[in-house]
Amino acid sequence: MAFSPASLLTIQNLHAGVDNTPILQGIELSIGYGQVHAIMGPNGSGKSTLANLLARKNGYEVYQGTITYLAEDLLSFSPEECAWKGIFLGFQYPVSIPGVSNIQFLKSAVNATRVAQGKPPLDAIDFLNMIKEKTAKLDMPSELLYRSLNDGFSGGEKKRNEILQMTLLEPKLAILDETDSGLDIDALKAVATGVNNFRNENRSIILITHYQRLLDYIEPDFIHVMVNGKIVKSGGKELASTLEEKGYAWL
């Protein structure tokens, strides 16, 4: 892969694992500004490991390699520093936090990030106005804002909530881990619309997906296929339909 000095994220020869078990076996990837990269692959190929590692989740060991984000060493960040510097992870299985209302959580997150970025925190009224507008765009009932975070949310509601958070936090790099899994067609469309509306030349997205269905709605610039912890094939958006026809075994 050619490395562009102006790229947002550069991963070089990344070897990493958990509990002394290697999972990523030499990942090479470069994400430019405003690009949408899809990462596909069979279960167990290490896609979620890569996503969680980029968000600096505890418990992963890096044996070799570097990750550069905005010319800094990403491996030196804590999870919240990643967030403040504009990395967002849309979780595959968003966890629930009982007793903490959705809106309270969102406001804390937005303001914590704003303050870290040197911006003034939003007061209650401004925040409420902003959030009402965004929930409407995502076709989310506003009563979801007042329920405990993800507590008793359906699969579709959880995923929409993840996208809502993404639009509120305005990251530079959004990593969406199987955002489409478990969604019916309406939820999928709403999520896709949210993501597409979010795209611009300054924001990059890594879409991790198992099926190519999502890519019908969110057109990627690049597709990479991960198998056994390595990227075995990269290409343009046509790669999706080839995979659909021939399956992963073809690789």
């Binding site: 505890n58 967030a83 936090i97 903490v100 990030t113």
Partner: peptide, 27 residues
């Protein structure tokens, strides 16, 4: 760990995250 990581990934630091989760626990 999942709850803590979720909060931190959203920019809330560990101390604030624990405080928020504990308050939610006592809500």
């Amino acid at each position: 760990e999942e709850q803590l990581f979720y909060c931190r990934q959203r920019g809330i630091n560990q101390e604030d995250a624990i405080s928020m989760i504990v308050n939610g626990f006592c809500k």
